[in-house]
Design a protein around this nucleic acid. Structure first.
Lengths: 191, 191
DNA sequence: GCATAAGCGGACCGTCGGTCCGTATTGTTG
DNA sequence: CAACAATACGGACCGACGGTCCGCTTATGC
């Protein structure tokens, strides 16, 4: 039962690795080209340290993603108006999706890396279940709204990292344009 | 300009490879565990033959997918009522999505393989553009329906192979249940 | 300080996509 | 049918990458 306090250098290295990975993903155009060896080198540690600290590539990316997502998660569970629990569902659902879209725009390559790592799907990656449960909960508060489980999946699929990346990268869609289109689509679904 | 007629054995081997790949993907639980060497062995040819005939793994999977999808593509472009061009848009859009869903259910592992190969996304894989263009065209025929470009992307995202796989595999959702939920969601969007 | 457990790092391994080239097959021409 | 060129075959080989292992280093508790 006793929690062992981790050594100071281990903590320092963990931070260094996360920071290094963030930098590398942000820099590179294709997340699969960021190798574990690259991350280790950028962080100034050995490869063994990466795997000791995170287990494998998937969990390293998940840990990084989780860290960066934390603020939004808190804003949703205990924050104020647009995202927080006090908001009426017909406003909160679009706000959730918009926040998620913006996050994926701000961390495009990281999100892309997360979604194409492991089995290649975001499902079962911890944070996905949380988003799905949360969004479905909001949709269920809407009177007469059926099939909220699938609808939540479908709405989340509309902001998947590779779709966003495709629209931004090869279609050159602007941030604001995307947000507007997502809002319009969400409105259709909620109507 | 002259098209060179391919040798007979080359044609035979090409078929053997496609058939072998189909079998292996159908059999295995995780498409990434089907290696090029496996496919070559199953087809009874050397690895070199695979790469000569298809270029790389991505294109092999695309070729296989394309082949299997052909019938549906024809049904959409020149077939009768539910899918064909004569259908009114408010019926055709759901029919398209239902057909795509059924196809992905019938070829789950192959679809999964396709979507997680290459950059890890289905976008830019030829057939995606075709589906998107087609669906958007149908949506645009609906009076007063705006943002059809994004809506088409979002609707297609709702039937992505890994989502379907997730719902069927770990949620145990039945085929008919899924079809009904997709239909309900589509109806919401079209309303 | 000293003992010891925790952590470190990079050589090493297995696997996989992809290449290369000597050999075998096809089909064409007289 | 013989002989030759064009085409295709196949599997040894290569480089890259994720992940492991183990002898060495270093923080921490006494």
């Amino acid at each position: 039962m006793s929690e062992r306090k981790p050594r100071a250098d281990a903590v320092r290295n963990r931070e260094a690795v996360l920071a290094a990975a963030d930098r590398l993903f942000a820099r590179s155009d294709s997340p699969e080209h960021v190798t574990m060896a690259d991350i280790a080198a950028e962080a100034g540690v050995g490869k063994g340290t990466l795997f000791r600290g995170f287990g494998d590539r998937t969990r390293l990316i998940q840990a990084l993603f989780e860290t960066r997502l934390e603020p939004i998660r808190r804003a949703v569970t205990e924050g104020p108006y647009p995202l927080g629990p006090g908001t009426p569902p017909e406003e909160r659902a679009p706000a959730l999706l918009d926040a998620l879209l913006c996050f994926k725009l701000d961390h495009r390559h990281l999100s892309l890396a997360l979604e194409e790592t492991g089995t290649g799907s975001p499902y079962g990656a911890g944070h996905y279940d949380w988003w799905h449960t949360t969004l479905r909960g909001v949709l269920e508060e809407l009177p007469g709204f059926g099939g909220s489980g699938f609808a939540a999946h479908a709405l989340l699929a509309a902001v998947r990292a590779d779709l966003i990346d495709h629209l931004v990268d090869s279609r050159g869609t602007s941030r604001e344009r995307l947000r507007a289109e997502l809002a319009a689509f969400t409105a259709k679904v909620l109507s």
